[in-house]
Simulated assay, not measured.
Amino acid sequence: MPENHPIGIFDSGIGGLTVFRSIAEQLPGYDYVYLGDNSRAPYGNRSFNTIHQYTWECVQWLFKQGCPLVILACNTASAKALRTIQQKDMKALDASKRVLGVIRPTAEVIGDFSSTKNIGVLGTVGTVRSESYPIEIQKFFPELKVYQQACPLWVPLVESGEYEKPGSDYFIQEYLDQLMAQSPDIDTILLACTHYPLLQHKIKAHLPDNINVIAQGDIVAKSLADYLQRHPELEQKLSKTGKREFYTTTDDTAEFDHHASRFFAAPVKSSFVSVTEFSCK
């Protein structure tokens, strides 16, 4: 095994960098490897089997980089691939390796933000259709009512950089209106896509002041810190030099770096990795 044992962070593109940013801020001493599968993004509208295949390929690549722990910083991958990876695929590998997602940590605390016990969830088509959030939230807060709204145009708006322009407000308002029409008692809205924090200021501007808008980055980072504290056998394996590496499956690394720097709130310099290097064997 390589002496370097970083934490792997995976996303279908660049959205997971909002989660990585929070993790790196709260746990700055660890080494990290980020992989964005940009050449095959977006995952949101793909089939279950395709999402699982792509996600598992990327997880295995991160394992080969020496990562004993991989975080799926992608709601779609967490919703549609994580369970199969944990319960089936991992059985053939080193039992000490771990793959974690972003849905369960969020479900464990989201009810604490609501007074009315009415929660809204904004996500991709794939995440919403999976019903993962209502299922997981009910395990921890059975009294909560969960309303979902898919926002298929938001990721393209963010990735194209058009979200800052006035025209994006129409599409933001449209999906918020559809969500709020489901219940006037919603007082907490979860941004269940890692792209959406870049829209958070605009989303808040289109909502009453009493509605909480919750991004996942800090929640996932705190959950990871707690997980490492509870699993010292894993934590002690992790290398701690503060090194951060970025990889993307698009050969236009300059374009990736340009957009990624906005998500990560710091300069990003990435390297290209071809999907031909991936294998599900």
Rank of each mutant, 00 (worst) to 15 (best):
V121T: 03
K202E: 04
L69V: 07
S12N: 05
G15A: 04
L27N: 12
S274E: 02
H5C: 07
T194I: 12
M1T: 12
G123N: 05
P2T: 13
G44F: 03
K243T: 11
I7M: 03
S96V: 04
I172F: 11
V128D: 05
V109R: 10
Q229F: 08
G36H: 04
E164F: 10
G126R: 11
V102P: 02
R244A: 10
T194W: 13
L122P: 13
H206L: 13
G123E: 02
A73N: 08
P2Y: 03
T124M: 13
Y227I: 00
K240D: 10
P232D: 05
N212D: 08
R21E: 14
D89P: 01
D252Q: 01
I214D: 04
T250L: 07
G29Y: 11
A265I: 02
F278M: 14
Q200A: 10
I214K: 00
E136S: 10
T250H: 09
T248F: 01
G8H: 11
K145L: 11
P267C: 06
L62Y: 08
V155Y: 09
G29R: 05
Q60Y: 12
I172P: 13
P42A: 11
Y196M: 04
I51D: 07
F264W: 15
I23K: 01
T84K: 08
S39G: 03
I186H: 09
R230T: 10
Y196I: 08
A215R: 00
V268E: 01
A205V: 09
I219Q: 09
T241G: 14
A92K: 14
T248C: 01
Q229G: 09
Y147H: 11
P184N: 07
D252M: 00
E108R: 13
P28V: 00
Y30N: 11
A95N: 10
D257H: 12
G15K: 03
H201W: 01
G36S: 05
S183R: 06
I137A: 07
Y32Q: 11
T50M: 11
W61I: 00
L122E: 08
I51K: 00
A254V: 09
R83W: 08
T116V: 05
R98C: 11
S47V: 00
F263I: 07
A41H: 03
A221T: 03
L207H: 04
